[in-house]
């Protein structure tokens, strides 16, 4: 799996690409910890290019979710579709995870929400 990292202000977007399985789950966790240590405030996981997820992949998402929750980092998971969406729905995690349709949607939301802008800068 490939992870491309994009920053804008304190938002960090992790574009995931490939299968999110046992092996890539570790990579994602580590990448998250790294970003986390850099002091991010907003995290977006872009799963537009993830076609497969297994239980360890779900585990890594759960890990990221709980870590962000604990430390008041806002998290959005966007572009979940196909098999990963089915798996997430089957396990009832669709209502638990902060899922959003598209990246643009989330970014627009940030832009509209002017109140936060001051906090970032």
């Amino acid at each position: 799996m490939n992870i491309r990292i994009e920053y804008s202000k304190l938002i960090c977007i992790l574009h995931l690409q490939g299968d999110l399985d046992l092996f890539s789950a570790e990579l994602l966790k580590r990448q998250f910890q790294l970003q986390f240590n850099r002091g991010l405030k907003q995290l977006i996981l872009d799963m537009q290019q993830v076609e497969y997820i297994d239980s360890m992949g779900i585990g890594s998402l759960l890990y990221i979710f709980s870590e962000t929750k604990k430390r008041n980092i806002s998290l959005h998971i966007v572009g979940v579709h196909g098999t990963p969406r089915k798996v997430i729905e089957l396990t009832r995690l669709d209502r638990y995870f902060p899922l959003a349709e598209s990246l643009q949607e989330v970014l627009d939301e940030f832009d509209e929400d002017g109140g936060h802008e001051d906090e970032w800068s």
């Binding site: 759960l62 089957l90 396990t91 009832r92 995690l93 638990y96």
Partner: peptide, 10 residues
């Protein structure tokens, strides 16, 4: 189908 989350999460 499932009625709730997997165990061990919340």
């Amino acid at each position: 189908a499932a009625l709730g989350l997997p165990i061990g999460i919340e």
